[in-house]
């Protein structure tokens, strides 16, 4: 469905120093800097996948999404989406994709979302019967019946995002690009959006999700692609990503007596909550769990013990570094 071959994007930007003199100098001379946003991306995405695209700020995620949506031209490389080259056959291609940008609204601020939906119907040339059917379905799925008639400026961020999703789905796209769709949303709004994406994905729509919210990825994506410095540093299943830290576990330990010194091989203090409670990272390759519990139990009475996998953030940070 989407095939990316050795995709590169280089652009020019300008830099200057932070001193007042540098600002004055920049009126006449600016230092030109060549930025390699993408350094040869290779990726294949199959129909019906839901991919999480992760990466720190400036990693190249948004540049990749913009090339895939036909917004930007690449410097070199090949891309084929739904049989189209996005930047060459833009009009035919974008009729079959959708996009939601968390920080760029497609709704008109001063009028109700329903008016923007009508406008989209005219833009995509959606037949009335199809439009009515899809709109009804989307409104039901996102529980948006009460909000689509209110002026957009009066909607909460969560309500607005639900309408952004309706807007993006009205023409029944086969692939949808989501760029930080849950940014700034509360837990309930996030859950509503996630449930919608899951349901649409189950119905066969392919999603490419760019986000900094790792919960989104954990809840939605079966496959994760991590980009850093314009290169793919990981491409695989979520579970595989979690195993990247090998045999590590996070242990929340509480004791009745003050905790002893824990500086032994395979044990690392993450957070010392109090003299009686701490979060520890155990490397099970160096110290077995029962051996650790036994050692602690020799001098202390264990009040509580919780063993968890390391948070996905830790894995991502390790990959970024």
């Amino acid at each position: 469905m989407i095939k990316i071959d050795n995709l590169k994007k280089t652009y020019v930007t300008y830099r200057r120093g932070e001193r007042f003199l540098d600002v004055l100098k920049s009126m006449f001379v600016r230092k030109k800097v060549l930025v390699e946003a993408l350094k040869g991306i290779n990726l294949i995405i199959e129909k019906g996948e839901l991919i999480g695209l992760l990466g720190p700020n400036g990693a190249g995620k948004s540049t990749l999404i913009k090339i895939l949506t036909g917004i930007l031209y690449p410097s070199s490389g090949k891309v084929e989406c739904l049989g189209f080259v996005p930047w060459r056959q833009r009009r035919a291609y974008v009729a079959r994709i959708g996009a939601v940008f968390g920080q760029k609204s497609q709704l008109v601020f001063d009028i109700p979302p329903i008016d923007s939906f009508h406008m989209n119907r005219a833009i995509y040339g959606i037949p009335k019967a199809d439009y009515d059917r899809t709109l009804k379905r989307m409104v039901e799925m996102l529980d948006a019946g009460d909000i689509i008639g209110k002026p957009t400026r009066g909607l909460s961020l969560g309500e607005r995002m639900r309408c952004e999703f309706i807007m993006a789905m009205l023409h029944s796209p086969e692939v949808v690009f989501l760029d930080e769709p849950t940014i700034g949303l509360d837990v309930i709004a996030k859950e509503s959006i996630r449930a919608f994406v899951k349901e649409m994905n189950a119905a066969g729509v392919t999603f490419i999700l760019t986000t900094h919210d790792l919960d989104d990825v954990e809840h939605l994506a079966k496959r994760v692609v991590v980009i850093n410095h314009g290169e793919i540093v990981f491409d695989g299943a979520m579970d595989t990503l979690k195993t990247h830290l090998g045999t590590k576990k996070i242990v929340r330990l509480s004791t009745h007596e003050p905790l002893p010194l824990l500086d032994r091989p395979g044990v690392e203090m993450v957070t010392r909550v109090s003299d009686y409670e701490a979060d520890l990272e155990l490397d099970l390759a160096k110290i077995e769990l029962n051996q650790f519990i036994k050692k602690i139990g020799e001098k202390n009475t264990i009040r509580d013990l919780a063993i968890n996998d390391p948070p996905i953030e830790t894995v991502i940070k390790k990959l970024y570094s």
Partner: peptide
């Protein structure tokens, strides 16, 4: 602002949009 993105993802002439 970079909001030309929103016009470029519509299946119409960009000038018309």
């Amino acid at each position: 602002e970079g909001t030309y993105d929103l016009l470029l993802i519509k299946p119409r002439s960009v000038l018309f949009m």
